[in-house]
Amino acid sequence: MKRRTTWHAAWRSCAHTAAPLLLLVSCMTTFLPAASGEPLEALLRADLLDGRLDDLTLLEAALIAGGIDDTRALNHHVEAFARVEAALRRELPDTASPQERAEIVFRFLHTNVLTGPYARDCMQVERSLRGEEYNCVTATILYQSLAAAADLPTIAVSTPGHVFCRIPGDRDIETTCPDWFDRTESVSPLSSRARRDLNAAQLLAKVYYNRSVLLLGRGKFSPATRYLSLSISLDPHDADALENQCAAYNNWALECAAAGQYAKACSLLEQGRRINPYYEHFARNERHIRLLWTQAEGASAPGP
């Protein structure tokens, strides 16, 4: 069977065809009640029904999307970040221009928060907030959160496999690059390839997307497709997530077929076809799996 093994790398996995998997990709302090009676992820999804955050901050939402479902743990991180915000405000001159604020926030972030190494497969803002690893998604979320505390408007921007920030004056900021403001190229726009501005919901979709990529790499298809569905619900135009969702159902079906679970394999391909009936690998792999199924049933049938 062609098996493609590349997931679009943080944002892309093929001799029957497994499909490529892509990889990765206002800070008022609020506190949730210690016992809300409702899972935090349900609260997040309810808050995002209109496509924007009304009750949760971006930081709170990102922590929940990254897997925190305990209010005490969430409030612990929110309190810690509030102290970081307070320290930043003390360093901000009242007369600082937006460009100056952008640089102060950036340097403060990399000196006081993003003190660990860059790691493409970092999936949780919580880890970055603790001074562990970070990637473009977590760094952008934390930069935007700190910028809000500094009254600096920002916009998250995506290109294939990457996200970064833009500030007033249309200046791009590579949030993963600690010496960005020391580079001459920092005054030039970053890649113009398929740039998209992201709202909060679409940026949070990247958190779910990256969690799915990690699970796909481990062959955990069921939870991975759930996170991909969440990602797509928040950003229906994310081509990487849409392709990975099809690739996940395709490769999951091939794994089931290899284990002799032909009915389940065909069911998974049908689920994938409902997402994208034109995905090239579904039809040929279904024919191949049904042929294997017929051969297996023939082999197990009693002789005359």
Rank of each mutant, 00 (worst) to 15 (best):
S229I: 04
Y262G: 05
P302W: 13
A147E: 06
E174T: 06
I289K: 09
Q295D: 09
R90M: 01
L204T: 11
Q295E: 14
T140W: 04
E100F: 03
I64K: 05
L48I: 15
T17D: 11
I68E: 07
L230Q: 14
L269V: 08
L291G: 08
E91H: 09
L23Q: 00
G219T: 09
F221P: 08
E103R: 15
P153Q: 13
S186M: 01
G67T: 08
L74T: 10
T184G: 03
D54G: 04
T175P: 10
R287T: 14
D151N: 09
P153H: 11
T294L: 01
I104P: 00
L109G: 05
L204K: 12
H76S: 10
L48M: 15
H237R: 09
S229T: 15
I104C: 02
K2H: 05
A10H: 02
R195D: 10
L203I: 00
L109V: 08
A42C: 07
E270H: 06
R183P: 00
A102H: 06
Q261N: 05
A87M: 11
F282M: 08
I232S: 07
D170N: 14
L234V: 11
S128F: 03
D121R: 12
A34Q: 00
Q261E: 12
D69V: 03
A148G: 14
H162E: 10
S26I: 12
M123S: 08
T184Y: 05
P189G: 00
A139M: 03
Q295P: 00
F81R: 11
G67I: 08
S128C: 07
A258D: 15
S192H: 13
I155Y: 01
L109E: 03
R226Y: 14
V113F: 01
A46N: 11
L268W: 02
D69H: 08
T71S: 13
R287Q: 15
A200L: 09
Y279T: 05
T29R: 07
L114Y: 07
N244I: 01
W180I: 10
R274N: 09
A241L: 10
L228H: 04
V105I: 02
T140H: 06
P178A: 12
L44V: 09
L24T: 14
V207G: 13
T140L: 11
Q245S: 08
S186P: 01
L204W: 12
L109C: 08
N251Q: 12
I141V: 14
Y143G: 04
T111P: 00
L228A: 10
I64A: 08
G67P: 10
L88S: 05
P117G: 04
L59D: 13
R183L: 09
E243D: 07
G169Q: 02
Q245Y: 05
P302M: 12
E38C: 10
R12A: 07
T159W: 01
Y227S: 07
I104F: 05
P178K: 10
A263G: 10
S13M: 07
V157M: 13
L40H: 02
I289F: 05
